[in-house]
């Protein structure tokens, strides 16, 4: 240890005015996004495993189960499956968000962040931006996988991009669910619970099979599952095989795929903010 005195590298700056505050909020958020990116750089194997897991599912469902599956209205099961797997990939993202938020909340590093003169939104904003980046990457990997197993978009690039937009909108809504659950749990040990719960949510939708084949009441739940709305809408926009709908929810998949995520975000965003504030009581 040397004996040089510690001199402050800068005078405390008071950021006043809305423009300055917004600028710092963005800068702070970016600093924390970079923190998440640095985590990936230090643990690339985790990122790669996370990206390859849904690819494995595509191969499993597409080639092992696929032979048995009858697509409603006819067509390739793998083409039917891909929109479901895109949406499932977005749902798996909840695990990433949950694990990161719960880990931070269980450690004193959250206290340090909260004792710094940074924007209080930055912790969540930085996390959110990193997770969205991750999901874009995951979606790209899945699209390449889809192309390799015979999935195509049949309605033009514009509608395909709109479908991607709906998927990311779903991911954005689930971001707040993940943040909320992470702040409630405050311990990454509950990650297993989240990982398990993802499955019934995924299967209780139109991701893998036509809800019409399920017992009546279960089929109804599956029809109204927010996941089904996004999947139905993306099937429509990609022009991949689906079914003739029949239910009101299936007929209006595209507006529902916009409304459901907005509703989820409208519920879980304020809940998350309240939870975060409650840390100071």
């Amino acid at each position: 240890m040397t004996s040089t005195s510690l001199v402050s590298p800068a005078e405390p700056v008071e950021s006043t005015g809305a423009p300055a505050r917004l600028r710092w909020a963005l800068a702070d958020g970016w600093t924390l996004t970079r923190r998440a990116l640095a985590h990936w750089a230090r643990r690339p194997e985790q990122v790669v495993m996370g990206l390859l897991f849904p690819v494995m599912l595509v191969l499993m469902f597409g080639y092992l189960f696929g032979g048995q599956m009858a697509v409603p209205g006819g067509g390739s099961y793998r083409e039917f499956l891909m929109p479901g797997m895109f949406a499932m990939t977005m749902v798996f993202g909840v695990e990433t968000t949950f694990a990161a938020v719960a880990t931070d909340a269980s450690r004193s590093i959250t206290d340090r962040f909260r004792s710094l003169p940074m924007a209080s939104s930055a912790v969540v904003a930085g996390r959110g931006a990193a997770d969205m980046l991750h999901s874009v990457l995951a979606l790209t990997v899945m699209a390449v996988t889809g192309l390799a197993v015979g999935w195509r978009w049949h309605e033009g690039a514009g509608r395909a991009l709109a479908a991607a937009g709906l998927l990311l909108l779903l991911r954005f809504a689930l971001l707040w669910l993940g943040v909320y659950l992470g702040l409630v749990a405050r311990s990454p040990e509950l990650l297993v619970a989240v990982q398990v719960l993802v499955w019934p949510i995924g299967f209780l939708s139109n991701a893998f099979v036509d809800p019409a084949t399920m017992p009546g009441w279960l089929g109804a739940i599956a029809e109204w599952n927010p996941l089904s709305a996004t999947i139905g809408a993306t099937r429509e926009l990609f022009g991949t095989p689906g079914w003739d709908g029949g239910s009101w929810a299936a007929e209006h998949a595209v507006p529902m795929a916009v409304l459901w995520p907005l509703l989820l975000a409208a519920v879980f965003f304020p809940l998350s903010v309240r939870r975060y504030r409650r840390l100071s009581r």
Binding site: A27, T31, L32, L116, M118, A122
Partner: peptide, 8 residues
Amino acid sequence: MFGRLHHL
């Protein structure tokens, strides 16, 4: 990172 969050 903490330096950046102190707005250095």
